[in-house]
Amino acid sequence: MDLILFVWRQKGPDEKGLLEQFAAKDISPEMSFLEMLDTVNEGLIKAAKEPIAFDHDCREGICGMCSQVINGVPHGPQEKTTVCQLHMRNFKDGDSIYIEPWRARAFPVIKDLIVDRSALDRIIQAGGYISVHTGGVPDANAVLISKDNADTAMDASECIGCGACVAACPNGSAMLFTAAKVTHLAMLPQGQIEAARRVCIMTEAMMKEGFGNCSNHYECQAACPKGIRVQFIAKLNREFIKAQIKDSGKRNQ
């Protein structure tokens, strides 16, 4: 099939970008979306033009590197699917496809469809872990964890850190990302010791990075390729309230 692509081209962070039109010819429905772009790029290289730069790595939907807004939806039209797992059979011959980078102040464009997502790393660095040393830990079965809690922790921990939630959010908020990590750790007894501190410093770090605030649009959940749910944001909110109560309790002692 033949397609018309409108792809965001931008030379560098401070350059102006624009949508450039490309024709993608003889595309097989068996191709993945990125393989379609590979084909287009091969053609561009042979025509002595600059290929489209885009992030990708594992191409099996787990590393979280790929990041494209396709026809107005982060990761494209198929639910719970990353760009790399999206296949061309989801499109029709003659379709026009708009391909844009994640857009948010906290994710400056590096080139074309590549953005800088290190802000997400810095949110984790603020406190998205359990402060345990290597070695000197108890036996793995010394602390029992109910299956339900372990399952919920796992649900939250499936986040691949791709940033689609930020790209989809009308406010450019990273609340779903932050909430997923807060929930994952707060569901486990090992993580509860630092829970109050963690929720405060992680949300503070999120603000400092220039992400917006959550106003419960739930676009993030709809765009998330891993099905991370906004209930985790409610959980983060609960953790925050708990932290405030605990804090004022401490002050009264």
Binding site: V73, E100, N171, S215, N216
Partner: peptide, 23 residues
């Protein structure tokens, strides 16, 4: 703050879950 966090807008944007009311 939210407006500042989302400076550029998409050439094409489809809203999946948000509503006219929420926006």
């Amino acid at each position: 703050e939210d407006n500042a966090a989302k400076p550029g807008s998409y050439a094409m944007k489809r809203n999946l879950r948000s509503t006219f009311a929420s926006r």
